[in-house]
Every structure is written in C-alpha cells, then in structure tokens.
C-alpha cells in the first residue's frame, strides 16, 4: 500500500466514475422502456450504436464539427428507436411477451449486421473534444475528454428530469408507467406515449453511444454487446424502473470496472463486474432503489 498505488487507485476511481455516466444513460434508457411497456428491448444497445454511426457518417462525409456529430448521433438513435418500436413492439400482442423479446433479438442481429456491413467491420476514428487538455489535482490527472463526456451526460440527465417532471408529456409517461389502463381511461394515448418513450430512450442511448465513442476515440460495431450487457447490469443493480437507481448503478459499474482493471488486468475485469451483479441479485434482488417484487 504505497503512495503510488493509492494515487493509481484514486485515478482509476475518478476515471471510472466519469465514464460511468455513459453506462448510467444506457441504464436509464432500458429502465424507461421497461417502465412504460413492461417489456425488455434487447435491441436497445444496438440501436444506440446505430445512431452513433449516423453521426459518424456525417463526420466522414461532410467533416462536420464534433457537436453536430454528437447531436446527429442522438437524433439518429431516437429515430432508430422509433423504428424498433414499430417493428418489434407495436404489433406483437400484449399477452405474448416472448414474441416481442425475440423480435427485438432479431432487430439486434439486423442492426449489428447493418453496422458491420456499413463499416466493413473496421473500427473508425470518432471525433472528440478537449482530448489534449488535462486537469491536474495534485498527482491526479483528470482527462479533459472524460470531463466533457461527464458534463454532456449530466446535461442529458437533467433534460430528462425536466421532461419527465415538468412537461405534460412527462406526466403522461409517468401515468402510463404507473397504471396503463387508468392512464388510457384519462384520455392518454398509450401507444403514442410508448412510441415517444422509445424516441426519448433512443436519444439518451445515442448520446451514450456518442460519448462512449468520444471517450475511446474509435467506433466499432463490437461495442454493441458491451453496451447492452453493461446497461442491463446497471438496471439490475439500480433497481428496475428507477431512474436514480440507474444513475447510481452506472457510476458504480463504471468505478468497479476501472478498479478491477487496475487490480486484475483487462482479461479478468468483466468477470468481477459480473460477480458484483450476482452479489446484488442474491443479497438485494430488487436492486438498490427497486420496489418490492410484484406479480408481473
């Protein structure tokens, strides 16, 4: 336990917490969709990444500035989210949850292949901002681009909270997630709310995808599986349907991942993250902020 180890440890922790905000965004997306539809959208991670590729396309063809690229990624992912809703969830019957689950798996395969097809399976550079800058706090260096990622993710979460708690659309969304039938009796069109939730979740996912790519510096189709798995883990740790839970879960997973990376190396890192998940499932099956298990 010498001084340098402690510095390394704090450094990893800080980097992990900053990067963890992208996991938190993905987790929020899964939670939102599950909240209103009570269904799992396995295509979500792939849709988020597909949106990121839309932004990348803009960057490669028009050499667009980074902010335009990020915005295009978010909007692209939102639109792809809408397509996923109409292909996999709108027309499959409520009574058969397996049908929409498998349809979203089909969509996942389709989107992944699409991305591999478009990118020829090769990683591409993705624009980033503040990549050269560092913020020095004593012996700990905070990377400028990670700080930027953190800032954007926090802004996205703030916007989401404003949308959910300060607008009529947010009220309708919360109503549908609490009691779909009662919401419909009050005149809320639940199909429209569901569709809009997919768009909102897609925009969040696109932001997360863009920020992941910006922090890593490259974009490759293989990120999709990682996004899906990490996002699901975040949801379980935070508690299903809880947005604060997803945020805390995201930060926790980001931090844990970086610390295990430091302690055990890159090949064993994810094993310990999965073990963390199992620990949560056994000790707190409802997650950190989850309500008591209900009959679903």
């Amino acid at each position: 336990m010498d001084y340098f180890f402690i510095i390394d440890f704090v450094q990893s922790l800080a980097d992990g917490l900053l990067f963890g905000t992208t996991y938190a965004l993905i987790g929020i997306g899964f939670t939102l969709i599950f909240g209103v539809m009570r269904k799992l959208n396995l295509a979500y991670g792939a849709a988020a990444l597909a949106g990121t590729y839309v932004g990348l396309g803009l960057f490669l063809t028009f050499n667009a500035p980074p902010f335009v690229v990020f915005l295009a990624s978010a909007i692209g992912a939102g639109l792809i989210g809408l397509v996923v809703y109409y292909c996999c969830f709108r027309f499959t019957p409520e009574a058969h949850p397996m049908a929409s689950l498998l349809a979203s798996v089909g969509m996942l395969l389709f989107l992944e292949e699409m991305m591999t097809h478009v990118s020829h399976g090769m990683p591409h550079p993705y624009p980033s901002v503040l990549s050269g800058a560092t913020l020095e706090l004593g012996d700990i260096w905070i990377r400028g681009d990670l700080l930027f990622v953190f800032g954007i993710c926090v802004v996205a979460m703030a916007l989401l909270f404003w949308l959910l708690y300060r607008t009529p659309l947010g009220l309708a969304t919360r109503a549908v997630s609490q009691q779909p039938r009662a919401a419909q009796l009050c005149g809320i069109d639940s199909a429209r709310v569901n569709a809009l939730t997919f768009v909102i979740a897609g925009v969040l996912g696109g932001t997360a995808g863009a920020m992941t790519a910006a922090a890593v510096g490259i974009l490759s189709p293989i990120i999709a599986t990682g996004l899906t798995v990490k996002g699901l883990i975040v949801v379980v740790i935070g508690g299903l349907g809880s947005i604060p839970g997803a945020i805390i879960g995201g930060l926790l997973v980001g931090a844990a991942e970086n610390i295990f990376l430091l302690l055990r190396g890159v090949t064993e890192r994810d094993i310990y993250v999965m073990l963390l998940l199992f620990l949560f499932l056994t000790l707190r099956p409802g997650g950190l902020f989850g309500s008591a298990a209900t009959r679903d």
Partner: peptide, 28 residues
C-alpha cells in the same frame, strides 16, 4: 438457486451475466 429467486427481466440479466462469466473463465 440464486438466479431463480428473481424472474422476468432480472433473470435474463442474471443468466446473461452468468453466461458471460463462464465465457471469460474459459478465456482465462
């Protein structure tokens, strides 16, 4: 035993994590 204490989406995630854990175990 631990995995089936939960159901629905939580079970999907738990079993997904277990599968990945096995894969990474053989990777190492």
């Amino acid at each position: 035993f631990p995995a089936l204490r939960v159901k629905g989406l939580m079970l999907v995630v738990a079993t997904l994590a277990f599968g990945e854990m096995v894969r990474l175990f053989f990777f190492n």
